[in-house]
Simulated assay, not measured.
Amino acid sequence: MPGWLEVAIRSFVGFLLLIAIARMYVRKPIGETSHLEFGLVASIAVILAIGSIQLAIPIGHLLVAILVWAGAAIGIAYLSVMNASFRSVIYGKGIPIMKDGKILEDNMKKQHLTTDELLRKLRAKQVFQVADVEFAVLEGNGELNVLVKKEQQPITAKMLNHQVAPIKEPETVIMDGKILTEPLATRGLNQEWLKTELEKKNAILENVFMAQIDEYGQLTIDLFNDKMQVPKSTELPMLEANIKSVIASLETFSLDTENPQAKQRYKWCVEQMKKVHDDVSPFTKGN
């Protein structure tokens, strides 16, 4: 067999093996892998790369090396999932760097973390003042996780006791101009509904690059032609406006009538419609 052909075959097989090992081993971004995980994958890649061009290395020896390194990597990953003590030994535990708003200098020295690095990691978390930090921990992969003080945390709807609409995962129903039937079925919809919604937006399927159904059941689309403007949905804003119009009309009727019973009924209707408005507004304003 010609040398160039053997190199090509080895390289192709090595590429396939690397993909298979990587998929079995770990599914993490490079920035979230530990030094050990990165080292194991890099070692396997180096073995495959060298074995692809060093024809003097027998195939059997190359396979043994791959089996040992890949088996060790997969075995460590499996044991780490099954045993917390083993996981702590291999990857280490999170080390507090700040506690109760104070920097723990001794822990910084143990982790070889300089003040400049601490400030840089804090800035990466959008924290520019050390005084704003309540607690910070350095994870095994070198990432710094930060808990800011209560008064520095953003206000949430829960803090205000405000009701908000539940969030559903958006479903992509058109991709690259093709309809995806499974996401449509997940929402209990069909292609006829989709075509009707596209007609409302003066769009045809062939012109739609991507379309998604948001948490409120509204269809949003992106066209192949970036110069074309897509009209915004008006259904929920119209519902909000109609409810307010009904409330205003009922209040007017209540003021105009001289009948005490009718006035009382109109006021009761106003109260009921205001309750409806309070229940619906999280959905209409979220659009």
Rank of each mutant, 00 (worst) to 15 (best):
P2V: 05
W4T: 11
L5M: 14
E6A: 12
V7P: 02
V7E: 05
V7C: 10
I9A: 14
G14P: 07
F15A: 14
I19C: 03
A20S: 11
A22S: 15
M24I: 06
R27V: 04
R27C: 04
G31T: 11
G31F: 04
T33A: 08
L36F: 12
L36H: 03
E37W: 02
L40D: 03
V41A: 12
V41D: 00
I44M: 09
A45M: 10
V46F: 09
V46T: 12
A49P: 00
I50T: 15
S52Y: 00
I59T: 12
G60P: 00
L62N: 06
L63K: 02
A73Y: 06
I74E: 07
G75D: 06
I76K: 08
I76A: 08
I76W: 09
I76T: 10
L79A: 12
S80H: 06
S80P: 04
M82N: 07
I90C: 12
Y91S: 13
G92M: 10
G92S: 10
G92R: 08
G94I: 03
I95D: 02
I97P: 08
M98L: 13
K99Y: 06
G101Q: 04
E105T: 12
M108K: 06
K109A: 08
L113Y: 07
R120T: 11
R120E: 12
K125R: 11
K125H: 05
Q126V: 06
Q129E: 15
D132E: 15
E134P: 02
A136T: 05
V137Y: 02
V137T: 13
N141G: 05
N145P: 00
L147K: 03
V148K: 13
K149N: 06
Q152G: 01
I155C: 09
T156E: 09
A157Y: 13
K158Q: 13
K158I: 09
M159P: 00
M159H: 10
N161E: 12
N161D: 14
N161Q: 14
E169W: 01
V173A: 02
M175A: 11
R187S: 05
Q191E: 15
E192K: 14
E192C: 02
L194I: 07
K195L: 15
T196V: 04
E197C: 02
L198R: 01
E199H: 11
E199Q: 14
A203K: 01
A203F: 03
I204A: 09
N207I: 00
A211D: 07
D214F: 08
Q218C: 03
T220M: 08
T220Q: 11
D222R: 09
D222L: 13
D226F: 01
P231W: 07
S233T: 06
I243N: 08
I247Y: 10
A248G: 00
S249H: 13
L255R: 11
L255C: 04
D256Y: 05
N259T: 07
Q261G: 00
K263C: 06
K263I: 02
R265C: 01
C269Q: 14
C269M: 14
V270Q: 09
Q272H: 08
V276R: 05
H277C: 02
V280L: 12
P282R: 08
P282E: 09
F283V: 14
K285D: 13
N287M: 11
